[in-house]
């Protein structure tokens, strides 16, 4: 909790929160980190396997193999989401399932499935990017800022 928020609490609230904090189980940080490392690593290894598969058996080089590899990983993640397995892997693996492309696929697929009951336009269309939307919005904005800085440095520095 931020310092500013703590200040607004009354003495009674502060006393209770300290009382309660002694009785709340903490998030198992170390275990979570290890599990995230393991699960994230396994997902990336599978991705690596796909890349090897596409470069060895198809006419792809290391760069162009990126697209079919990502597509394969997305299809698997969406299938696991639809079958109701992905959230269980995520509860165990934590951050390991969020970071790779599979996590992004899961946010889109889960929101689309959930809001199917409100129809294709208002439900699926309107809510599909509910969780992934901020990532895209700020991702695009960050890219714009970094791009502008890069161009400025190149034109100024390259004179």
């Amino acid at each position: 909790m931020s310092k500013g928020k703590k200040k607004k609490l009354t003495p009674v609230q502060r006393e209770y929160q300290a009382f309660a904090a002694q009785r709340e189980p903490r998030r198992p940080l170390l275990t979570n980190c290890l599990r995230a490392f393991l699960v994230g690593g396994i997902i990336c290894t599978i991705g690596q396997g796909f890349q090897w598969f596409y470069t060895t058996y198809f006419n792809f080089d290391r760069v162009t193999a990126g697209s079919p590899t990502a597509a394969s990983m997305i299809i698997i993640a969406v299938l696991l989401t639809g079958l109701g397995v992905y959230d269980h892997i995520a509860q165990w693996g934590g951050g390991g399932t969020i970071v790779p492309v599979t996590g992004f696929a899961n946010t889109l697929a889960s929101a689309a499935i959930e809001h199917r009951s409100e129809g294709f336009v208002l439900g699926v269309g309107g809510n599909m990017f509910k969780i992934a939307g901020p990532v895209i919005t700020f991702g695009v904005f960050a890219a714009f800022v970094i791009g502008t800085i890069t161009v400025l440095i190149k034109t100024v520095g390259g004179m």
Partner: peptide, 17 residues
């Protein structure tokens, strides 16, 4: 879950509380 938190199939880790 749909109304208060995330879609049911979304992979967010929940804390022990």
């Amino acid at each position: 879950e749909k109304q208060f938190r995330y879609p049911t199939e979304y992979g967010a880790q929940k804390p022990p509380t």
